[in-house]
Write a protein that binds this DNA or RNA. Structure first.
Lengths: 135, 135
DNA sequence: GGGAGTGGTAACCGGAGGGAAACCACAATG
DNA sequence: CATTGTGGTTTCCCTCCGGTTACCACTCCC
């Protein structure tokens, strides 16, 4: 039966902090958005041109959600055409290390893409355990 | 018109590294999975019991995708009931700082949940710019 | 013989996510 | 007058994600 230390599950708190944080960053463009905001505060249309492929609907939805979660604040500037500035809150700024870590890995990834050592000739092509594999 | 320095977009490389990395971590349970694997290698059924709410289908899909992306390796152990061990590759291990940063923020988040200073009485209740706001 | 444990796959299916486009109200601008 | 730019909302629509369930093929153990 090959038991091998059955329940050696190290940490894993009951309410997963990872899941909690990923709820903030979930959804399309969210991480990009926080990244853009990590510098100076930006306005709606600036963000739209920063991330050209995001739609107004999704941008609006993300901004609402992020504000609701306390990640950013919206500040209305009463100018001739009233504009709105979005800025990270203190809590939002705590996400910056996460974003930067992701960007770091992303950049390493882009280097790997050039040299992709897939399917070394000497190794087995891909041993399946004993799965069904009908016909 | 209030021009304010039009295109001061700082970095944002053409092929976004953030998006590239998020493609690896996208999808339900993926980050959790990498987290579990960040310690010792684990088997399919171990992962299933580690993350009780993940379904076999999604677990299988994630493992396939992560293997395809070079994040982990599968190793078939030819034992009596053949078992499969999943382990992070070197590239997969580079994701660990990301996961840990996420977990760090997640834990801070859980502390904040207890004391949630939403809607400070002194500030405006929520000024909308001039949006439609029909009736 | 029957059940459990191994590691999956196949089919079904509902709901959410997200893209596209139209629309809004108003001021400034051409 | 028409257009542009401001910041969104709303509707339509379609895809794909992920949950559920069933099933497989095999071996070991009671």
């Amino acid at each position: 039966m090959l038991r091998r230390r059955k329940n050696k599950t190290p940490p894993l708190p009951p309410l997963c902090p990872l899941t909690e944080c990923m709820k903030l960053l979930g959804g399309a463009w969210t991480a990009n958005l926080v990244w853009r905001l990590s510098g100076e505060p930006r306005r709606f249309s600036e963000l739209r041109s920063d991330i050209p492929r995001i739609s107004a609907k999704v941008l609006s939805a993300r901004l609402c959600a992020l504000e609701k979660n306390g990640v950013l604040t919206r500040h209305v500037v009463a100018s001739s055409p009233p504009s709105v500035e979005y800025a990270l809150t203190e809590m939002g700024r705590e996400l910056i290390p996460v974003i930067e870590a992701i960007v770091q890995v992303g950049m390493k990834l882009q280097h790997r893409v050039e040299v992709r050592p897939r399917s070394v000739p000497g190794s087995a092509p891909r041993p399946r355990a004993r799965a069904t594999h009908r016909t």
